[in-house]
Simulated scan of single mutants.
Amino acid sequence: MSEIVQLLLNGLAAGCIYGLVALGFVLIYKATEMVNFAQGDLLMLGAFMAFALIEGFGLNYWLAFLGAVLFMAVFGYLLDTVILRQVIGQPQFAVVMLTIGLGFLFRSGASMIWGTETRAFATPFTDGVVKVGGFIIADVNLSIVIGTALLCGLLYAFFRFTRIGVAMQAASQNQLAAYYMGIPVKMIFSLVWAISAAVAAVAGILLAPVSLIDVTIGLIGLKAFAAAVLGGFGSIPGAVFGGLVIGVIEQFSGIYLPEGFKDVAAYIVILLVLFARPQGLFGNIGRKRV
């Protein structure tokens, strides 16, 4: 029982990271109907930016955290304004290929600036543990869970109680109607990209003490995409829940199943869920009358 609870706690921490990256996928898709396959690479850039602010500029962890998130928010805004806005209305295949290409570009740029070796930076949570009963919880895992909960609560309050958040919801429901009601839809799209990049940066900084930082850390976006599909690609709560499910399944399959299953367990679960419920666990079936 002790081992099961320990695996569950570790899985929830890993799942929170998947959920945050999946949240970025869903936010962009709901607003713009684009699938951003560079989302994982935005996580990588956010982690490297925090590393640069801490190691290069000597900032403490919290100032570097805030600075990296703000930088990535501006980066996401400009990414949409300068590049992605130009492909609105183009076939989905063109958009997918563009975001995949951007991911390669981000990884190449990061390798030229920071190199290909693994990086790390000190955090207030490194090497700390909390003992609860007979269980040991690493501070880094606890910080991931608490950070994810706080961020989700903040996003809920933003979308529920602010004018910009309500405008984003309106634009995601019906772009044309939102435009006729005076909502600046293009600016809203750019703000959604900014929020998505900022969320990815938070995930990258929280993940850095666990897996360290290199140019391949963004490949976690593949499992986050699986989490978004599992939860229902248009559902924000489903993205977080899907990430938690994937994280827990990975932990248990790595211990109780043969070697190699941990890397593919997430995709096996997705296939099984999609056979039974193609729209995902929290998704809705779209119907069109012709």
Results as ranks from 00 to 15, higher is better:
Ala266Ser: 13
Asn284Ala: 15
Ile213Ser: 03
Ile285Tyr: 03
Leu155Trp: 05
Gly19Gln: 03
Met97Asn: 04
Ser190Arg: 05
Ala228Gly: 14
Phe241Ser: 08
Gly242Ile: 03
Thr81Lys: 13
Ser196Pro: 05
Ser190Cys: 12
Ala167Lys: 13
Gly109Phe: 10
Ile113Gly: 06
Gly128Trp: 08
Gly56Leu: 12
Ile217Pro: 00
Val202Phe: 05
Lys262Pro: 09
Gln90Ile: 13
Pro258Val: 15
Ala149Arg: 02
Leu142Val: 12
Ala64Gly: 13
Gly133Thr: 08
Leu274Cys: 11
Phe261Leu: 14
Phe125Glu: 10
Lys223Leu: 13
Ile213Pro: 05
Gln92Tyr: 08
Phe75Asn: 07
Val273His: 06
Ile136Thr: 12
Ala239Tyr: 01
Phe158Arg: 00
Val87Tyr: 03
Arg287Leu: 15
Gly260Asp: 04
Thr162Gln: 10
Phe158Tyr: 04
Ile88Gly: 06
Pro209Tyr: 00
Lys262Trp: 09
Gln92Leu: 14
Gly221Ser: 06
Gly101Trp: 06
Leu191Gln: 04
Ala122Gln: 10
Tyr29Ala: 10
Phe57Asn: 07
Gly234Glu: 11
Leu206Gln: 02
Val26Asp: 02
Leu191Gly: 06
Val87Arg: 08
Val69Tyr: 08
Phe252Ser: 13
Ile285Val: 14
Gln173Thr: 06
Leu281Gln: 02
Gly24Asp: 01
Thr126His: 10
Gly238Glu: 11
Pro184Gln: 10
Met44Gly: 08
Asp263Arg: 07
Leu230Thr: 04
Phe71Pro: 01
Ala122Trp: 07
Ala170Tyr: 06
Ile217Thr: 11
Leu272Phe: 11
Leu20Gln: 01
Phe25Glu: 00
Ser108Asn: 14
Val140Asn: 09
Gly234Tyr: 01
Ser190His: 04
Tyr77Ile: 15
Ile188Asn: 01
Phe233Lys: 02
Gln6Arg: 12
Ala178Asn: 09
Arg107Pro: 05
Tyr29Cys: 11
Leu176Tyr: 06
Leu79Arg: 00
Ala203Ser: 14
Gly67Ser: 10
Gly247Ser: 06
Ala200Gln: 02
Ser235Ala: 15
Asp139Thr: 13
Gly260Glu: 04
Leu102Phe: 09
Gly133Leu: 12
Thr216Tyr: 07
Phe57Arg: 05
Gln86Leu: 15
Val269Cys: 11
Leu222Ile: 15
Val290Arg: 08
Met1Ala: 13
Leu150Gln: 03
Gly103Tyr: 06
Gly19Met: 04
Ala197Pro: 07
Val145Tyr: 00
Leu191Ile: 15
Gly254Gln: 01
Ala197Lys: 01
Leu8Glu: 03
Ile183Trp: 07
Asn284Val: 15
Arg277Gln: 14
Pro91Val: 07
Phe252His: 09
Phe37Asn: 06
Thr216Ser: 08
Val132Lys: 04
Ala73Met: 15
Ile4Phe: 13
Leu20Glu: 00
Val87Gly: 06
Lys288Asp: 04
Gly24Pro: 05
Ile205Thr: 01
Leu59Lys: 09
Phe104Trp: 12
Leu53Pro: 00
Leu154Val: 10
Leu102Gly: 07
Thr126Asp: 13
Gly242Leu: 03
Leu230Val: 09
Ser2Met: 13
Ala198Lys: 04
Ala203His: 03
Leu191Ala: 13
Tyr61Glu: 07
Gly11Thr: 07
Phe135Arg: 06
Arg289Ser: 11
Gly204Thr: 02
Ile83His: 02
Gly182Glu: 02
Ile4Leu: 15
Tyr180Asn: 10
Gly89Asn: 08
Phe37Pro: 07
Ile54Pro: 01
Phe37Gln: 04
Val202Gly: 01
Ser111Lys: 09
Ser2Tyr: 11
